[in-house]
């Protein structure tokens, strides 16, 4: 990471830290949701932007995390802290089981199949499978997180919890993009055959990207449950997946600032224009088309060339 980037990220993170002091609690809640959606979008970007797989069912993993926490807490009485490992592992397992048979499909076919998975997932939630998902209304009254006697019940505490998870996500993604597995994702995305022929196990890394992104989305799901003390199928339906998909492409695939900007644009901006009610989504559609025409690679496109300095200096 060069100095310029460190300064940028420093300013961004510092703003997020001090922001709640300037906002009323409604807006702190909006910003918390923004952070949660940023985490999900960043995780979606691992599969869609970096590995280049058209996954339009990412809300599944987000939902699995959220529902794991809600169900284990409400139905089985687990403390929230104990549900977190399950809310990470279950999405990982699900992502591998779902992705393994379809990972070889070409772009659009993968997209359609993942839409299919998402619809089956939400229908199952609505139909109250195993009698534990609460049906169309979902689950209410999930307990707050308690760590060493501290209870995360205020909006502010949940905000900083979400912020902490975002920080963690940013570190993981930074580590990913400067490592062998992260580069492998770009290689197989840009030319799968050439990648195979220089020795990259493309199938393994495709599944790897699914698993890693599912883990992060699941973790975001936990924070989602804590933020609303409730989960319902509508928050994880296929329309939500479309939203995450769009955020990545509008912002800039593989670009961390791009995805964050995309989330801001697709999520916070509509909140700002709330008084214009329904018309805002119409304007939104127009904006999506215009952005794609003017900046087909997103608002803040990725820059490659992440190479160490000692390579270019004599």
């Amino acid at each position: 990471m060069n100095t310029k980037n460190i300064v940028y990220y420093g300013i961004f993170l510092f703003s997020l830290i001090i922001l709640p002091f300037f906002l009323n609690s409604d807006w702190v809640s909006v910003m918390t949701t923004f952070i949660i959606y940023s985490i999900v979008s960043l995780s979606q970007d691992i599969v869609l932007g970096r590995a280049g797989m058209f996954d339009m069912g990412h809300a599944i993993f987000f939902g699995l995390g959220a529902y794991s926490t809600a169900i284990l807490n409400m139905v089985y009485g687990w403390p929230i802290l104990a549900t977190i490992p399950i809310a990470i592992i279950l999405p990982i397992v699900a992502s591998i089981i779902l992705a393994a048979p379809i990972i070889h499909l070409r772009g659009d076919y993968l997209l359609v199949t993942t839409i299919g998975f998402n619809i089956v997932f939400t229908q199952a939630l609505k139909n109250n499978v195993f009698g534990i998902t609460g049906g169309p209304n979902g689950i209410f009254g999930v307990e707050p997180l308690k760590i060493l006697g501290f209870v995360f019940s205020s909006q502010l505490s949940i905000y900083y919890l979400a912020f902490f998870i975002l920080l963690l996500t940013l570190i993981v993604i930074h580590n990913l993009e400067t490592s062998k597995p992260g580069r492998a994702l770009h290689y197989l995305n840009l030319d799968s055959l050439a990648s195979e022929c220089i020795g990259i196990n493309t199938r393994f890394y495709r599944l790897y990207s699914f698993a890693l992104s599912a883990a992060l989305a699941g973790l975001a799901g936990v924070v989602f449950t804590l933020q609303f003390s409730a989960v319902s199928p509508g928050a994880f339906n296929f329309i939500q997946s479309v939203l995450f998909f769009t955020i990545v492409l509008v912002g800039g695939p593989s670009s961390i600032p791009g995805v964050l900007l995309g989330t801001f644009f697709m999520f916070v901006v509509p909140e700002i224009f709330r008084q214009f009610a329904e018309a805002r989504y119409l304007v939104f559609g127009v904006a999506m088309i215009l952005i794609m025409i003017w900046r087909p690679k997103g608002i803040w496109p990725v820059k490659f060339g992440r190479i160490p300095n000692y390579l270019t200096k004599e």
Binding site: V172, N175, L176, S179, K180, P181, G182, R183, A184, H186, Y187, L190, D191, A194, S195, I198, G199, I200, Y208, L212, F304, G305, R306, I307, L311
Partner: peptide, 26 residues
């Protein structure tokens, strides 16, 4: 890998020789 830099292209050849494991991406 057209969009990537020359160095990153050649680095792809080091994929197998590099002993990094999957967790080094995290």
């Amino acid at each position: 890998f057209n969009e990537m830099s020359v160095a990153e292209n050649i680095m792809s050849g080091r994929h197998f020789k590099s002993r990094q494991k999957w967790w080094h991406g995290i």
